[in-house]
Write a protein that binds this DNA or RNA. Structure first.
Length: 482
RNA sequence: CGGGAAGUAGCUUAGUUUGGUAGAGCGCCACGUUCGGGACGUGGAGGUCGCAGGUUCAAAUCCUGUCUUCCCGACCA
C-alpha cells in the first residue's frame, strides 16, 4: 500500500480549503465537480449531467422503496388557484410569504391569481375529496416526482433554491393508526437511504411545534451532520390527522355505516439531499461519492496510452468490468495526472490505472478516493477485489461520518455549557427542554442554534430545562442548521 | 429585507486612485515533441469591460440607477 504523500498542493488550487472558508469550499466543489451552474434568474440552478446522474440514482432507490411499500406514482398540476390554497388556514399562513404568483395569461389579466405550487397538499386534498367515498377506497397511497417553487430570499445551490426537484408523497387512510404507521414507515425509508446508500447516519425524531410543517399535527424528521458542524434537515414525514380532511371535506362511509374523515400523511425528500452528500463526505480535493450511489463507481485511466496495446487493454478492462460494476474509461489524450485530479474532484470512488508495467505484470493499480490508498491487484483477482474494495469504501465513508457525529455530539446542562459546546466543538447538542416555546425562541436568539428534533430514543441528561431551569419534559437535539 | 464585498474572453484576473488604441495566465483550435500525479514549443480564434442612463472631444476608469453572485444577519415546510 502507498499513500499519496504530501505533494498535493497543486491538486487543490481550484478549491478553497474547507477549514479556511467552508461556504466558499461548498460553492467551489459544486462548480468544479460540474454538478450545477447558476440559472439566469436569481436563485435558480441548472443541474448538469453529473449532478443529475447522482440525483437519478437517489431517485431510483427511493422510487423502488415507495413501490415496494405499495405506493403509486401520479402527476398533479403545477398550478393552484388562490382560493384552493386558502382552504387550510395554517398551511397558507406557513407558505404565503414564499409563493410565486401567476397574474397574467398571455395578454389577459387573470380574474384569480394562480399560485405556482410550493407543495401540493391542497391539490391532493381536493382530489381525494372527489375520489374517496368508501372504506373500500382506502388507503390511497400516492407519490409524485415534481418541481416546486419557493421564493426564498437567500439561496444556495441545492440547499435552498427558488425551484427544486423532489418527491412528495400524499396518502389517505381510514384510521389514525394506519396513517401514523405510514408516517413512521416513510421516515424509515428516508433514514435507510441515507445510512445504506448515502453513507451517513441520521438522527430520527419529532419536530417541535415551532418547527413542524404548516398544517401538520406533527412532523417527523431525519437530521444529519455536515462537515462544518451544522445540521441539515434531510427528509420529513408529516402526520396530518384529519385537519386537511376537515378543510377539504374528505370523508368516507365506513363499514359501520358512519361517515368519517380520512387520516392523512405527506412526506418529502428533495435535491437538497445533494447538499448533504457534498457536505458530509467532501474533502479538500473535492466531492466524494459513496459507491452505492455513484453514477460511475470506477474510472479506468490508461497510463502511457500511446504505447502499444495500452489503450486496447484499458478498453478491454472496461468491457470486462462493466458486467460487474458501473465503470467508465477516460481514453482522451489528456495526461494521466490531469485525469487523476479530474476524477478525484468528481469523487469517483475507485480509480483503475493500467500502464505498460501493469500489463507486463498482469496487474492493475486500484486507488481509492476516500483514503488515497493504492494497491496492485493481479488481473486474476480483479473481479473479486474491485467489488470488495467498493464495499470497503462505502463502509469507511459511513464510519467516518458516524465518528464525526459521535465526536461532535455533546450534552449541555445549562446555557454556559451550551454556548461553549457550540463554540468549541460544533455539532448536535443534547439538552433538556421544558416544552415552552419561549425557551426555544430564546435559545435561538442567543445562540442561533435551533431545535432539530426530539429524538425517539430519549435520555435524561439532566432534570431541568437548559434555558429556564424549570422541570424538563424531554431531551432535544439542538444545532445550528442550514 | 438590512450590512459588507465583487462583476473585464469559458475560468482566474491586471488595468479604475490620476479618463486617452483592452492586457496576461489557464482553457480552447492546428501542428510537432511529450505521456506512471494537472507537459512543452510554435501559430491561431475568442471582449458591445454585467445592463441602462448621465458627464466629457474622449469612459472599463467619474456620477446615478439597476441586475447578478458571494459573505454576515433577519426571514425561512
Amino acid at each position: 500500500m502507498f499513500s499519496l504523500g504530501q505533494n498535493n498542493k497543486q491538486f487543490v488550487e481550484n478549491i478553497t480549503a474547507m477549514e479556511d472558508d467552508f461556504p466558499r469550499w461548498y460553492t467551489d466543489v459544486v462548480k468544479q465537480a460540474e454538478l450545477v451552474d447558476y440559472g439566469t434568474v436569481r436563485g435558480t440552478m441548472i443541474i448538469k449531467p453529473y449532478g443529475f446522474a447522482i440525483w437519478e440514482n437517489i431517485r431510483d432507490q427511493l422510487d423502488r422503496r415507495f413501490k415496494e411499500t405499495g405506493h403509486s406514482n401520479v402527476y398533479f398540476p403545477l398550478f393552484i388557484p388562490e382560493s384552493l390554497l386558502q382552504k387550510e388556514k395554517d398551511h397558507i399562513e406557513g407558505f404565503a410569504p414564499e409563493v410565486a404568483w401567476v397574474t397574467q395569461g398571455g395578454d389577459e389579466e387573470l380574474e384569480e391569481r394562480i399560485c405556482v405550487r410550493p407543495t401540493s397538499e391542497v391539490l391532493f386534498g381536493e382530489y381525494y375529496a372527489k375520489n374517496i367515498h368508501s372504506y373500500r377506497d382506502l388507503p390511497k397511497l400516492y407519490n409524485q416526482w415534481s418541481n416546486v417553487v419557493r421564493w426564498e430570499k437567500t439561496t444556495r445551490p441545492f440547499l435552498r433554491s427558488l425551484e427544486f426537484l423532489w418527491q412528495e408523497g400524499h396518502t389517505s387512510h381510514a384510521t389514525q393508526k394506519d396513517a401514523e404507521q405510514e408516517t413512521a414507515q416513510m421516515l424509515d425509508i428516508y433514514a435507510e437511504l441515507c445510512e445504506h446508500y448515502l453513507a451517513f447516519p441520521v438522527l430520527r425524531g419529532k419536530k417541535t411545534e415551532k418547527e413542524k410543517f404548516a398544517g401538520a399535527e406533527y412532523t417527523l424528521t431525519i437530521e444529519s451532520l455536515m462537515h462544518d458542524g451544522k445540521a441539515l434537515q434531510s427528509g420529513t414525514s408529516h402526520y396530518f390527522g384529519t385537519g386537511f380532511a376537515e378543510a377539504f371535506n374528505i370523508r368516507y362511509l365506513d363499514e359501520d355505516g358512519e361517515e368519517k374523515p380520512v387520516h392523512q400523511t405527506s412526506w418529502g425528500m428533495s435535491t437538497r439531499i445533494m447538499g448533504a452528500l457534498i457536505m458530509v463526505h467532501g474533502d479538500n480535493r473535492g466531492l466524494v461519492v459513496p459507491p452505492r450511489i455513484a453514477p460511475t463507481q470506477a474510472m479506468v485511466v490508461p497510463v502511457a496510452q500511446h504505447k502499444e496495446g495500452v489503450l486496447d487493454k484499458a478498453y478491454d478492462l472496461r468491457d470486462q468490468l462493466q458486467q460487474l460494476v458501473r465503470v467508465d474509461i477516460d481514453g482522451s489524450d489528456k495526461k494521466p495526472g490531469w485525469k487523476f485530479n479530474e476524477y478525484e474532484m468528481k469523487g469517483i470512488p475507485v480509480r483503475i490505472e493500467v500502464g505498460p508495467k501493469d500489463i507486463e505484470n498482469e496487474q492493475v493499480v486500484l486507488v481509492r478516493r476516500d483514503s488515497g490508498d493504492k494497491e496492485f491487484v493481479p488481473l486474476s483477482e480483479l473481479e473479486e477485489r474491485l467489488p470488495a474494495l467498493l464495499e470497503e469504501v462505502q463502509q469507511n465513508l459511513y464510519s467516518q461520518a458516524l465518528t464525526h457525529l459521535q465526536e461532535t455530539t455533546t450534552t449541555a446542562k445549562d446555557m454556559d455549557e451550551f454556548k461553549q459546546a457550540l463554540e468549541e466543538n460544533p455539532g448536535f447538542i443534547k439538552a433538556m427542554w421544558c416544552g415552552d416555546e419561549a425557551c426555544e425562541e430564546n435559545i435561538k436568539d442567543e445562540t442561533s442554534a435551533t431545535s432539530r428534533c426530539i429524538p425517539f430514543e430519549q435520555e435524561a441528561v439532566s432534570n431541568s430545562c437548559v434555558y429556564c431551569g424549570r422541570e424538563a419534559k424531554e431531551m432535544v437535539y439542538w444545532a445550528r442548521a442550514y
